[in-house]
Write a protein that binds this DNA or RNA. Sequence first.
RNA 1: GGCGCGGUACCCAAGUGGUUAAGGGAGAGGUCUGCAAAACCUUUAUGCGGCGGUUCGAAUCCGCCCGGCGCCUCCA
Length: 482
Amino acid sequence: MALNIYNTLSRQKEEFKPLHEGRVGMYVCGPTVYSHSHIGHAKSYVSFDIIVRYFRFLGYKVLYVQNITDVGHLLDDGEDRMLKQSKIDKVHPMQVAETITHSYFEDMDALGVLRPDISPRATGHIIEQIELVKQLLEKGFAYEVKGSVYFDVRKYKDYGKLSGRSVEEMVEGTRVETRSDKRAPQDFALWKKADPEHIMRWPSPWGEGFPGWHIECSAMSMKYLGDRFDIHGGGLDNQFPHHECEIAQSECATGHAFATYWIHNNLVTVNGQKMSKSLGNFVTLKDAFKKFNPLILRFFILQSHYRSPLDFSDEALRGAGAGLEKLLNTVRNLRHELARAGTESRTADALIDLAMFKARLRETMDDDFNTPQAIAILFDFSREVNTLLNTGTPYTAASLLAIDRVYREFGGDILGLIPEAIETGGSSNGAMEGGLIQLLIDIRKEVRAQKLWALSDAIRDGLKNIGITLEDKKDGTTWKRG
RNA sequence: GGCGCGGUACCCAAGUGGUUAAGGGAGAGGUCUGCAAAACCUUUAUGCGGCGGUUCGAAUCCGCCCGGCGCCUCCA
């Protein structure tokens, strides 16, 4: 079965066909680095992380570009986000950018989001942006007014094709007062003249100024991926106006199509309410991580589809935490068995229809990256694995390894939920802690043999209190954290 | 006002024309166990917001209605 992707441009699922055989060029709108990342960022970048991982699993050579916006993102009142934050913090805007960029990657790393191949900064590509604006002026798609340059939306017939809006509708819907220096209210800035007190400024053919927000993504995506590439992604909220403007600029500048597939992830709500900075109910990842392990957040996000909205609540997160633990527990037990299988003479082959499970997983991921369905299949798979492990039958290392490979490929490589190394308990990792716990387990075994239950339970409860859980199995006791 | 998305069990959430409506959490009962924990088994929607329609057949398509949310203005 071929990979099918929902393309916002056509509003339907389409079979993925790369522009260049075996390669995928992908650009995703990255964060504006003025404040710490929140759970909305997590949903977006985890979603695209899955897409990148799955393409790589399928054997594509992926070039993943995700920008860092550190200039040009203007607020309603025309003030630059970066400048506003720098005034609040009383530091240089580039210091804000640097601090928040570090913070962003720290949070994404915690969530298991693989780093983009290229993370271009807008301020590092002023020259490219100016070049693009010059091209648009030369071709007559833009006009200059008092040191600022605007894109003339009426010159581009397809404006609105991504978001399904017409220019006429937009005029009617415009609430903000029409800026006097624009020819039409829908026109958007490519380059803005800098006021005297504006710190972030660069020389240009139109005087000192700074780039508009939309232009950076056109300039940087085309610089690194070519003026045509496969996938452009971002949050649904960027569909309009940001992506619509990007398409207009890029297609007018090059004279041909821009990105082939447009992918948009849905947004996040908190306790049923829209999460927004103006409402002040946004949850930063650093705060969320204090309550929930980052992997639990990742699991929670992947348990719903990327095109579905996701509502965050503590109850839902707790449920996700229990679910993830169930999954990891099985893998932990499997690897524990695997560690022993190598040293004991094992006889039986573990009988699970691995080919069937792998085919189901492939099929469901091929259907527009259906991660919730994939997770459900992993749970089906785990039920069989648990049953197998509970029989106490000795299995060959090879057959257990084959089972583990399914977890590694789909649960690890693709979904990023199952860590390379899970605490296996029992087996000594050379750490003193592990040795001490094993010593207590051995002593407790003796105590239990003498049926001294009170003492036996005291050991187990004591360990539980310091975060170590013992589990008595048919063939011995194992331990885990938590 | 314009555009768009979805209403599936106590909670989260797949499924989008056809055998018994996935999966996870929570609850209940059971098996195993000294007891726990974990695991496994059984169980919790004759029904998928409501009302009509199309069809041999609809949660799935169409229409209307009722509530929910998002975008149109900065946000991933």
